[in-house]
Design a protein around this nucleic acid. Structure first.
Length: 454
RNA sequence: GAGGCUGUAGCUCAGUUGGUUAGAGCAUCAGAUUGUGGUUCUGAGGGUCGAGGGUUCGAGACCCUUCAGCCUCCCCA
C-alpha cells in the first residue's frame, strides 16, 4: 500500500460517520431548546475584518486570533511598501498591508458587529442563536482544539433579568436532555467591582479577579501572596480573604456576601441580580461562585460558567451580560446577554461518561440482498418504494456470496435484510431477517413494505 | 509563549547491556463455504522502525537536530 504523506493542521480533526451522528445529536438537542425559547438562527462569515476582532478579547485573546495573509504580497510593484509593512509585523504590530482579515474567534463579537450594522431593522429585543465553528491559535491539549464549534444564544435590546433567568433555564434544560450532570455557576461582575472598590479602587479589579480566579488551583495562601505582589495592603487582602471564605449553601453564601459588600451600591445591585436569577429560575444545580471572573473583558453584569461533574474537563459553557457591546462598533445603548455551549467538550464529556444513547445511530434500515439480475431488479423496485416512504434502504451492489452481503450489513449496523432469490421471485414472497435476533420470516412483498413503513 | 511524555504494520503495542532476515494481537483480503452472517480453521498482503544527520565493524535501541501527537502551566469552550 502506498504510504500516504498528508496530515491535518494542528488541532483540527476529521469526523467519521459515527462521530458526526453523535455530534448532530448534541447540535439538534441544543438547537431545539433554543427554538423552544424563541431564538432565531443566524450565521456569519468564517472570517471578519481584523479590526472587528482585535482588542475585544484582552491581550491574550489578540494573540490567539488566526490572521489571514493578504493575497498579492508577491506583487513586484508593491515590494517596497510590503517590506515596510512587514517590518511593522516584526515589531509586533498589525499591518493592513500584510493582513486585514482573520478567522472568527467566537460568536459573540461577530454577532455584536451584525447587530451594530442592522439594529434599525431588528425587532428588539432580538433573540438569536448561532451554531458555527470558531478558531483559536491555542496550543491543543485535552478538550482544547484549534477549530471547534460554539452554540450561542444571545438577547440584545433588553436589560430585563428575565433574559438571564431564561438563559439559565436553557442551560439546565439542554444538559438535562443530554443526560450530562453539571453545575451552573453564576456570579456578577458588579460583585467583583464592589470588592475592588472596597479594596482600594476600581482600577484594582483586574488584578483582584485574576488572583482570586486561581483559588481552587493554587489555594488561599498563594492567592494572598499574589495579591500582595499586585500591590494590595494587609487590610485589603484580609477583606478578600473573608470574601473567598464564603462557603455553604446558596442561602448561606447570599447572607454572607450581603454582609460583606451589601453596603456598597454596586455590590448590592450585583447581589440582587444573582439572587433574582437564583430564586426565579428554580434550577437546583445553579450555584453562586464568587470566585468566577471570566476573562472576556466586555462582561458587565451576571456571568455564567458550566462545569461538568465527574470528569476532568474545562468549562463546557460560559456567558454573561454585556451592557455596551455594540458600542465598540459605534452603536451605543444596546444591552445584551448571552450564553455559549462548547460542543466539542460536551462531546468529549459524553464520550468519557458513555452518555450517548444507543439510538443515536440512524443509518440504513434495510439491506436488500443481491442474488442475480432478475432478483435484484425486483429488489430495486421494492427498495425505491421503501425510500419513497422515508425508509433508508440499500441494495447490495453486486451478486456476491451471502457471506459478504451479511458482513456488509453487520459493518453498517443495518438492522434488517431482505432476501429475494429465485424461489421467492416465483412465489412473490421475500425473507425478512432481523440480524440482531436471527429471526426470519417469509412474507409477501406488500406485507414486507407494510412492516417497514408501519 | 514555558515545560514534560511519546513516535515500530491500518489500530493497540512487544522488541533483552547495541548483534543474523523487526514480531504479536486485532483489523483487511482470500479459501474451507455458489441460498443464510457473527464462531472456528488455513493462508496471504501489509514496515523508508516519524524525518535528517552523527557515533559504531554493526543502530529500532545511543547522541544531536527537526517534525508530529498527547499532556501540564497560562488562558479558555
Amino acid at each position: 500500500m502506498a504510504k500516504v504523506n498528508v496530515s491535518l493542521p494542528q488541532g483540527t480533526r476529521d469526523f467519521g460517520a459515527e462521530v458526526v451522528r453523535k455530534r448532530t445529536y448534541i447540535f439538534s438537542t441544543i438547537k431545539s431548546v433554543f427554538e423552544l425559547y424563541g431564538f432565531e438562527p443566524l450565521e456569519t462569515p468564517a472570517m471578519e475584518n481584523l479590526d472587528t476582532l482585535m482588542g475585544k478579547y484582552g491581550e491574550e485573546g489578540d494573540k490567539l486570533i488566526f490572521k489571514i495573509l493578504n493575497n498579492g504580497l508577491d506583487n513586484p510593484d508593491k515590494q517596497q511598501k510590503i517590506k515596510e509593512d512587514f517590518e511593522k509585523v516584526l515589531a509586533g504590530k498589525n499591518s493592513s498591508g500584510i493582513t486585514e482579515r482573520a478567522l472568527k474567534y467566537d460568536l459573540t463579537i461577530p454577532f455584536a458587529r451584525y447587530v451594530a450594522m442592522n439594529h434599525n431593522q431588528l425587532t428588539m429585543p432580538f433573540k438569536r442563536y448561532q451554531v458555527q465553528p470558531v478558531w483559536r491559535a491555542d496550543r491543543p491539549q485535552k478538550g482544547r482544539y484549534r477549530e471547534f464549534y460554539q452554540c450561542d444564544a444571545d438577547v440584545v435590546g433588553s436589560k430585563s433579568l428575565l433574559n438571564e433567568i431564561e438563559l439559565s433555564n436553557i442551560y439546565a434544560t439542554v444538559f438535562n436532555k443530554l443526560g450530562v450532570s453539571v453545575e451552573i455557576k453564576i456570579n456578577s461582575r458588579k460583585i467583583l467591582a464592589a470588592l475592588a472598590e472596597i479594596c482600594g479602587g476600581a482600577d484594582k479589579m483586574v488584578d483582584i479577579t485574576i488572583a482570586i480566579d486561581k483559588l481552587d488551583k493554587i489555594g488561599i495562601e498563594k492567592v494572598k501572596e499574589e495579591l500582595a505582589q499586585r500591590g494590595l495592603n494587609v487590610a485589603q487582602i484580609s477583606i478578600i480573604e473573608n470574601y473567598l471564605n464564603i462557603t455553604g449553601s446558596n442561602e448561606e453564601k447570599l447572607a454572607a456576601i450581603k454582609q460583606l459588600i451589601g453596603g456598597n451600591e454596586t455590590g448590592a445591585k450585583g447581589i440582587e441580580e444573582i439572587e433574582t436569577v437564583y430564586r426565579q429560575s428554580a434550577i437546583n444545580n445553579l450555584q453562586f461562585d464568587f470566585t468566577l471572573a471570566r476573562g472576556l473583558n466586555y462582561y458587565t453584569g451576571v456571568i455564567f460558567e458550566v462545569k461538568a461533574n465527574n470528569v476532568q474537563m474545562g468549562s463546557i459553557g460560559g456567558g454573561g451580560r454585556y451592557d455596551d457591546l455594540t458600542g465598540l462598533f459605534g452603536v451605543p445603548n444596546i444591552p445584551g446577554v448571552g450564553i455559549s455551549f462548547g460542543v466539542d467538550r460536551i462531546y468529549d464529556v459524553m464520550e468519557e461518561l458513555k452518555l450517548f444513547p444507543a439510538g443515536v445511530h440512524t443509518g440504513t434500515k434495510v439491506l436488500f440482498f443481491n442474488l442475480g439480475d432478475a432478483e435484484s431488479k425486483k429488489a430495486f423496485a421494492l427498495m425505491q418504494e421503501l425510500r419513497s416512504k422515508g425508509i433508508a434502504a440499500e441494495l447490495y451492489h453486486e451478486n456476491s456470496k451471502f457471506d459478504k452481503q451479511f458482513k456488509y450489513a453487520e459493518k453498517k449496523q443495518i438492522p434488517f435484510i431482505v432476501i429475494i432469490g429465485t424461489k421467492e421471485l416465483e412465489t412473490n414472497t421475500c425473507n425478512i431477517k432481523e440480524l440482531a435476533t436471527g429471526l426470519q420470516e417469509t412474507v409477501s412483498f406488500d406485507e414486507m413494505l407494510k412492516k417497514f413503513t408501519a
